[in-house]
């Protein structure tokens, strides 16, 4: 049963990812990106991380895709979709991507994982969100603060960059 759902989510994710890079209208690409993010959120639930799935839906689907759509609307990019939409560097790019896929696929299929297992088994992960909250405010409190400061910098930076220049 789990395998069936994994297959459904994986196929939809790959198809919508191909849609993101191949559709000509940026609005269609953004919608396709949203579908892909939702599938990844569903895969997070299959991996027993419901909190991350919720965060994925809130931030990616709720904020990032809306921001992309907003940018497309503000900049009026839709009218430029009839021109050529691919680079002239197509052959080199395809060689690079296919080579990467072969190397990484070989590594994944022939590699083995023998690291020591942690103590968060499936039974302990019933309180997934509680464990994550405790870890965020105890063990990982320094990266947490750094990331919150980074968000503040990004907020100010985005406002400064998008501000109209004053004469």
């Amino acid at each position: 049963m789990e395998k069936l759902f994994f297959l459904i989510f994986a196929v939809i994710a790959i198809v919508s990812a191909i849609g993101v890079v191949s559709l000509r209208n940026p609005v269609h690409s953004a919608i396709s990106l949203m579908v892909c993010f939702l599938q990844v959120a569903a895969l997070f639930i299959l991996l027993r991380s419901p909190f991350l799935a919720a965060v994925q839906v809130f931030i990616y689907v709720g904020a990032v895709v809306v921001l992309f759509l907003f940018a497309v609307m503000v900049l009026d990019l839709g009218k430029e979709r009839f021109g050529g939409y691919l680079h002239h560097q197509r052959p080199i790019a395809l060689v690079v991507v296919i080579g990467f896929v072969f190397v990484m696929g070989f590594t994944i299929l022939h590699g083995s994982l023998d690291a020591p297992l942690g103590n968060y088994t499936e039974e302990a992960l019933v309180k997934n969100t509680e464990i994550m909250g405790k870890l965020l405010f105890t063990k990982y409190v320094f990266p947490f603060e750094v990331v919150s400061f980074l968000l503040l910098i990004a907020l100010i930076g985005a406002i400064v960059l998008a501000m109209k220049e004053k004469r």
């Binding site: 890079v21 940026p26 990106l33 992309f68 680079h87 560097q89 790019a93 990467f100 990484m104």
Partner: peptide
Amino acid sequence: LLSLALFSIGVAGVLLRRSIIIVLMSLEL
């Protein structure tokens, strides 16, 4: 393997597309 597929589709998007907004979307992928 699914992660590899999404990653390489994203890299292909960054390398192939001309519109910078699609490049940013591929980065998100």
